[in-house]
Simulated scan of single mutants.
Amino acid sequence: MQKLVESFIATANAFDVEGALSLFAADAVIDDVSVGDTFVGRDGVRKYLERFFVGYSTKSRLLSLEELDDLHSNVRLDFTGDFGHEVGILKIAINSDGLIERIDADLE
């Protein structure tokens, strides 16, 4: 899980939307309470990345990663960008192929 999270951070920080999308299952879901919206499938994930990472020049830094089991982790990230600074929590679930199938995101 650590490598997958690091790959997600690296591709998102590089604004490499295609690279980040390659880490997600086709039917992935991002439910971000802090923005009040859910993004479904690769098109939804693309929209999320383009709006909140590329659009706000967001850079992320890993603060902690707690592996709950082989398929679930809680990740704490430091976010900076055009919006200022926030700390967020991502509850990440992966599928048996090692792709992200769900992220539940919120800010502290």
Rank of each mutant, 00 (worst) to 15 (best):
D37R: 14
T38C: 09
T38K: 12
T38A: 12
T38S: 14
T38R: 11
F39L: 09
F39T: 01
F39A: 06
F39G: 02
F39H: 02
F39S: 00
V40H: 06
G41S: 04
G41M: 07
G41I: 07
D43W: 08
D43M: 11
D43F: 06
D43A: 14
D43K: 11
G44L: 07
G44P: 05
V45A: 04
V45Q: 04
V45Y: 00
R46A: 09
R46H: 05
R46N: 07
R46K: 12
K47I: 06
K47R: 12
K47C: 06
Y48F: 15
Y48W: 15
Y48P: 02
Y48T: 09
L49C: 06
L49E: 00
L49M: 13
E50K: 10
E50S: 09
E50G: 01
E50V: 06
E50A: 05
R51L: 11
R51A: 13
R51V: 05
R51G: 03
F52A: 00
F52M: 02
F52L: 09
F52S: 00
F52H: 11
F53A: 01
F53Y: 15
V54E: 06
V54G: 03
G55E: 10
G55W: 07
G55R: 05
G55L: 11
Y56N: 13
Y56V: 08
S57C: 07
S57M: 08
S57A: 13
S57G: 14
T58I: 03
T58G: 04
T58K: 00
T58F: 03
S60L: 12
S60W: 01
R61V: 09
R61E: 14
L62V: 09
L63W: 05
L63G: 09
L63H: 05
L63C: 11
S64G: 14
S64V: 05
L65T: 03
L65C: 09
L65M: 15
L65D: 06
E66P: 01
E66M: 10
E66Y: 11
E66R: 14
E66K: 13
E67L: 08
E67V: 01
E67M: 04
L68D: 05
L68R: 12
L68A: 12
D69L: 14
D69I: 10
D69R: 12
D70P: 02
D70K: 14
D70H: 13
D70S: 15
L71F: 13
H72N: 15
H72G: 01
H72R: 15
S73D: 06
S73Q: 13
S73H: 08
N74C: 10
N74V: 14
V75Y: 03
V75F: 03
V75A: 03
V75Q: 03
R76V: 11
R76W: 04
R76T: 11
L77Q: 00
D78L: 13
D78F: 10
D78Y: 07
D78T: 01
D78C: 03
D78R: 07
D78P: 00
D78A: 11
F79H: 12
F79S: 04
F79V: 02
T80N: 05
T80H: 02
G81N: 01
G81M: 02
G81L: 02
D82C: 03
F83P: 02
F83S: 08
G84A: 10
G84W: 06
G84Q: 08
